[in-house]
Design a protein around this nucleic acid. Structure first.
Length: 680
DNA sequence: AAGTTCCTGCCACAGAAG
DNA sequence: CTTCTGTGGCAGGAACTT
């Protein structure tokens, strides 16, 4: 041993080469495992890279899936940030975007960018907690106000600061900075590679904020989900954030109505939610009645919205906590990870933050509030939905503010702040889902107690947090996984009077049937896409496509038994029966006949996924055709996998790939053997 | 007003797993 | 064979578009 020399070698080029390589991969979409949707653009990237560079993503990916939507940053800005992440450089960015860039950098927890503009001197004092500090000061500092005046410190290259503060130089290199990845201990299993998580922010970009009020009607910020082709934003799916105003979610908006300061506060909290964590928190979920009423527009305000206490069961039963709040005592370690309450949330207050639940007329009688000792979350509100069916009402778990305005919150907030505790405001149930997987959450509404069950990650349904025996096999396709069973983190469950409702984590719609929710969720995730074979439209639901295609084929399956006329769909048929025959089509007697579908093969399990192959193949009813080249509609045999695979780009990207779906039926393409129904 | 699309509970079917 | 899960059609109401 003695005689041997120990040799060390450092490849100084390695990191840069590696980064460059990764960037190239990104450029080609190679190995990208996450899609970040910002406005109407989507960015493919690598989770590892993002999470390593951004505390925000680090946390987000512990719960998010393959698709993430950010609404608090503009695409243009995000592109810059992404470029930085993959190149360590910010190149020639317009100075007027700097403020926004910095702000976004703060929100995303990209230290270098977040720290741009902070004078070195100040920088030194920057809390290592990066985001934390940033968040608190963010609203006031660098980003906004000094905007123009605040010119980032620019120094000659050689003069870099070694204390870790970034300096703007020509090359923008970061020296001496150590990202504290350590603080992020959250990482639990990460694996969730499920569906989609839409992230929005409390303080939306100016433009967005402005319209907030009108947000209900329009989408202030472009939404990705809707993104797709011509489709009308897939209904609700559209943009979960800010927008959705579908009936089911009429309640939303709340956040948007928040007063400036409210918004701000929440903003802070959100921001803080980003990178900081691991602090015992008080989760305050609540929302001022006033606001709620406002927000919900006319709908409910007449009704006084009761305050709900959400109680999250904690390991520690004994929790004093007054009704209003309870602090989350440090949870057991084991669970601590999973619980990081603060983490999460990507949802935005400003965004859709209400959950609606159709409740049965007969509301349960107070199930005893079991949550005796537990962590309580002061929560939110509810509202009765006048327009709903009698007896129905919607539960709204809405935005929360850090205690400043509400009676409750305020008290609490200050109190705990004083105690040095962190008050995390969670807005919407999204957070609940994010933080309490596996925990039971109760919502006490008036006399009644409802359970909110966050399905254990990994095993979707069956509500009751099945203690997650198998922390999910996650992406890791464990061999014994049931038929490609997909893990879904697409919902949480709310149990009302023994009845389970499935709440979409994205838009908060409630469903009585999990299958309905699953089906619905695709409008958010677009995990599967159903392209029309006649035109370039793509649908998130097979049925939509089917109905749409019927219009291409012209088949009229619905026949009026009274006059014999045939119609394309039920609606027209019913309309005809009502107007012409003055009868009620939905009555007991069948007034129409539905002929079997002849032009389209029914029940074809053909859809497309993002998965792999780049060669689109579609298999419909035993016919396999290639849609890529547009040349020959090679027909194959049935047994081929029914997958028509294309990438996100094929769908989302603009006009470029339209060809893919253009089948040009007019050419009499042989691929389609549609039978023109006689009735037509 | 008519037509079209969306939504969601319900149901049946198909295929994989046990 | 049974069970579980995914898938998709249907009804019928609602919202949206033309």
């Amino acid at each position: 041993m003695e005689g041997k020399k120990l040799i060390s070698a450092t490849d100084t080029q390695y990191s840069s080469v590696l980064l460059q390589s990764l960037n190239e991969q990104r450029g080609h979409g190679l190995f990208c495992d996450v899609t970040v949707i910002v406005e109407d653009r989507k960015f493919r990237a690598h989770r590892n890279i993002l999470s390593a560079s951004s505390t925000y993503f680090h946390q987000l990916f512990s719960v998010a899936g393959q698709v993430v939507e950010l609404s608090f940053v503009r695409a243009e800005i995000f592109a810059e940030i992404l470029n930085y992440i993959y190149s360590s450089k910010i190149i020639s960015i317009s100075s007027d975007l700097l403020d926004e860039l910095i702000k976004s950098g703060q929100q995303l927890g990209v230290k270098f960018i977040a720290d741009l503009g902070i004078p070195p001197s100040e920088g030194k004092n920057m809390p290592s907690e990066g985001k934390d500090g940033a968040s608190e000061t963010s609203t006031s500092s660098p980003g906004q106000k000094d905007a123009e005046t605040q010119v980032p410190v620019i120094r000659p290259e050689g003069q870099e600061v070694t204390d870790g503060m970034p300096v703007i130089t020509q090359s923008f290199s970061l020296h001496g900075i150590e990202y504290e990845t350590t603080k992020i201990t959250v990482s639990d299993s990460d694996d969730e590679d499920d569906d989609v998580i839409f992230c929005s922010e409390i303080v939306p970009p100016k433009e967005c904020t402005k319209d907030k009020n009108s947000a209900t009607q329009n989408q202030p910020c472009p939404s990705p989900a809707g993104v797709v082709s011509d489709q009308k934003s897939g209904g609700s799916g559209g943009s979960p954030h800010l927008t959705s105003t579908t009936a089911a979610q009429k309640l939303t908006l709340s956040a948007s109505q928040l007063s400036p300061n409210q918004t701000q506060s929440s903003a802070e909290s959100l921001v803080s939610g980003t990178p900081q964590h691991l602090t015992p928190n008080i989760i305050v979920l609540n929302k001022p009645l006033l606001n709620s009423s406002l927000s919900a527009s006319s709908l409910h305000q007449t009704h006084v919205t009761p305050t709900i206490n959400l109680v999250e069961e904690n390991q520690q039963p004994s929790n004093n906590g007054s009704l209003t709040e309870v602090e989350t005592t440090a949870v057991d370690d084991e669970e601590a990870v999973e619980d990081d309450v603060d983490i999460i949330s990507s949802s935005s207050p400003g965004s859709v933050s209400s959950s609606s639940l159709v409740q049965q007329p007969s509301v349960p009688k107070a199930a005893t509030t079991e949550g005796s000792g537990v962590q309580k979350k002061q929560v939110v509100t509810f509202s009765q939905e006048p327009s709903s069916k009698p007896g129905e009402f919607k539960i709204k778990i809405s935005d929360v503010l850090t205690g400043n305005n509400k009676e409750l919150s305020s008290g609490i907030a200050s109190k705990h702040v004083a105690e040095g505790q962190k008050i995390i405001t969670l807005d919407t149930a999204t957070e609940i889902e994010g933080l309490s997987t596996g925990c039971k959450v109760y919502a006490n509404i008036g006399e009644d107690t409802y359970d909110i069950v966050i399905p254990v990650k990994g095993d979707s349904e069956e509500g009751e947090a099945k203690a997650d025996e198998t922390p999910r096999t996650s992406g890791g396709d464990s061999p014994n996984r049931k038929r490609m069973k997909v893990k879904h983190d697409d919902h949480y469950e709310l149990i009302v009077d023994g009845r389970v409702y499935y709440i979409c984590i994205v838009c908060k719609r409630s469903y009585a049937c999990l299958t309905s929710l699953r089906r619905h969720f695709n409008v958010h995730s677009w995990e599967k896409k159903y392209p029309c074979r006649y035109c370039d439209k793509v649908f998130p639901l097979a049925e939509y496509r089917t109905k749409h295609e019927i219009h291409h084929t012209g088949e009229r399956r619905y026949q009026c038994l009274t006059c014999g006329k045939s119609f394309i769909n039920y609606q027209i048929t019913a309309s005809h029966i009502r107007s012409v025959h003055s009868q009620d089509p939905s009555g007991d007697t069948k007034l129409y006949r539905l002929h079997p579908c002849r032009s389209l093969q029914i029940r074809q399990y053909a859809y497309i996924t993002d998965h792999s192959s780049s060669i689109p193949v579609i298999n419909e009813g035993g016919i396999v055709y290639r849609v890529g080249t547009g040349k020959d509609g090679t027909e194959g045999t049935t047994s081929n996998p029914p997958a028509k695979q294309i990438t996100w780009d094929d769908i989302f990207i603009p006009q470029g790939n339209e060809a893919i779906f253009k089948q040009n039926p007019s050419e009499g393409s042989t691929e389609f053997e549609f039978v023109i129904p006689e009735s037509y």
